[in-house]
Every structure is written in C-alpha cells, then in structure tokens.
C-alpha cells in the first residue's frame, strides 16, 4: 500500500487537463511547427464558438460594471410607490421590493462580485505560487512539512470557516477577499510545486546555478516565468470559484453588508418575492452562472492553447 500514490493521482487530477470538451483539432504538423501562444489562442477562439461567446460575455460584463455609474438611476434610491414594477423602458429589468432599479443594482452587484473574485484570486495565486515554489525548490523535510500543512487546509471545511470568520468579524469587501483567498491557494500551490520540482532539474536551472545565481534569482527569473501558463489557467478557474463562494456567502447573509449589494445578496432579497415576482430571482443567478461558466471555459481554452499537446 502506498499512500504516496494517491497523492500523485491528486496532482495529476489537479494538473492534468481532464476536460477538453471541444479539443482544438491540431494537425500533427501544427504542433511540430509551434506557432506560439497567440496563434494557438486565436485559433482556439475561432474554432470554439462556446469560448468565443464566453469571452464576449465577460468583456461585456466587465465593461458594463465599470460603466455602472453612467446609469441614470441611483442603485440605492428607494421608491416605494414603484416597487416590484415589471420591465419597462425606464426600468430595464423592473424594480425590486424597495422600488430600486434592478438593472442598475445588477450592474453594481457585478462590480462587487467581480472585484471580490479578481482580488481573492490574486491573493490565492500570489500566496500559492510562492508557497509551491518554495516547497518544491527546497524539497526534503521542509517540502514534506509544507505539503502536510497544505493538506490540512485542504481537509478543513473551508466554507464553514469562512462563514464563521465572516459572521464574527464585520464583513467588509477586504476581509472577504483575504479570507476567500486564504482558503483557496492550496490547489495552486500543489500544481506549482509539482512543476517546480521538474523545472529545478532542468539544464537551464543547473547552468544558472553553476554560474552563481542565488536561489532567489533562480526562483524569480527562471522557475516562475516558466510556470506562467499553468498559473494563468489556475487563475481563471480560481476567479470562477471565488465568485461562486462570494455569492454563496452573500446569499446566506454573510457577505457584503447593506446597502452594498452583490449578485448573491440580490438573490437573498429576491427570495421574499419568489411567489409573486420570480423573475427577480432569475437575473442575478443567471449573471452568476454565465460569469462563472465563462471563467471556467476560458480556463480550459487557455490550457489548451498555452500547453499545446499532441491531440490524436
């Protein structure tokens, strides 16, 4: 019985591309004459309609939430005479239970969800990359200890701890970002560690070492730059997860606090009107679904383009 074996499988599962739904159909000589990352990306998007749709959707969502202040409505202005209004020219998606313009609120909600997603991803990626490279580069006992510690993080019910922390501290956007980030770096660390271990045996690293480069320099100039493709892929998936976590938190009432709203908290308040105006519950969820889906698809497309393999 070899417990290590399962760990290897886990690394493979995390790293290996398990899901290439619509594989880019490289011809053999395409891969042999590698035309570079941009060419690969471009062909992926040209061939894969789903990927193209997701990219466009994300661009629209990002631009829309940046331009949210241009909306003629104030997201927090209540108008009780006009509550639960249906779709109209003035109120694009109608109004919510307090008469606030739903479309404008969805735009501002998108800001919160995207910002939390983006920054938690950054926390997770920066910490995970440093942790993984250090662990993999040093190796031996240190590596073993560091990976055990990461395992502990992996085996705790992180969402529960996030809820507890958030309910006891006053949840601001910053605490949410830090907390979500702190509980989602382990996957990145594992991937990065596995790559570091193989990279550090490569000739160019040995040459750099023999030329007198210090560990710091080797890690930052030679090892990390070579892992950027994997890190980008992990980042895309990580944003998707962070947005899901944030919206679940806000839905349960442990996320951003009023009057600020995110898509998750919009759904929470939509629950009250689920009987008479179910469409209020429809839009925010659809936005979450499409955004998360887009980041997930994008992650897979990036993986196919950045790590070209011979697809038979």
């Amino acid at each position: 019985m070899n417990p290590e074996h399962n760990e290897i499988v886990r690394d493979e599962v995390l790293k290996e591309d398990a899901f290439m739904p619509i594989e880019t159909k490289h011809k053999e000589d395409d891969v042999l004459r590698d035309r570079g990352i941009w060419y690969n990306l471009l062909t992926s998007f040209k061939e894969n309609k789903l990927a193209m749709f997701c990219l466009c959707f994300l661009i629209i969502i990002i631009i829309a939430s940046i331009l949210a202040p241009l909306s003629p409505h104030d997201p927090d202005k209540m108008d009780l005479l006009n509550k639960l209004a249906p779709m109209s020219k003035e109120h694009f998606l109608g109004t919510d239970g307090l008469g606030r313009d739903y479309f404008t609120r969805a735009l501002y909600g998108g800001r919160v969800s995207l910002v939390v997603g983006l920054f938690s991803m950054m926390v997770a990626i920066v910490f995970g990359t440093l942790y993984g490279t250090i662990s993999g580069y040093i190796g031996g006992t240190v590596d073993n200890l560091m990976m055990r510690a990461a395992d502990i993080f992996m085996s705790v019910p992180s969402f529960l701890l996030i809820i507890i922390i958030n309910s006891l501290l006053s949840p601001s956007m910053t605490t949410m970002i830090v907390i979500i980030g702190m509980f989602s770096w382990m996957g990145v660390a594992r991937i990065v560690r596995a790559e570091t271990m193989s990279l550090k045996e490569r000739d160019f690293v040995l040459v750099a070492k023999n030329l007198g480069a210090g560990s710091f320099r080797i890690i930052f100039n030679h090892i990390i730059p070579n892992m950027i493709p994997s890190i980008i892929v992990a980042a895309s998936i990580s944003i998707a997860r962070a947005i899901l976590t944030e919206s679940s938190l806000s839905f349960l009432g442990f996320g951003v606090q009023l009057p600020m709203s995110s898509w998750g908290s919009m759904l929470q308040s939509a629950q009250e009107h689920i009987m008479d105006v179910p469409s209020l519950a429809l839009y925010p969820g659809l936005l979450i679904l499409l955004t998360v889906l887009s980041f997930n698809v994008l992650g897979d497309v990036l993986r196919n383009a950045l790590e070209p393999k011979l697809v038979k």
Partner: peptide, 19 residues
Amino acid sequence: ISIFSYIGISIPSFWFALM
C-alpha cells in the same frame, strides 16, 4: 454533455435550488 457539465460546475447551488 460537455456544455451541461460546464453548467453543472458553474451553477450557484442556491440559485439552482430556487429555480
């Protein structure tokens, strides 16, 4: 099937429940 499984990993469970 692939599109369905993309939706499956991306759908917020509480929203799916509400729907």
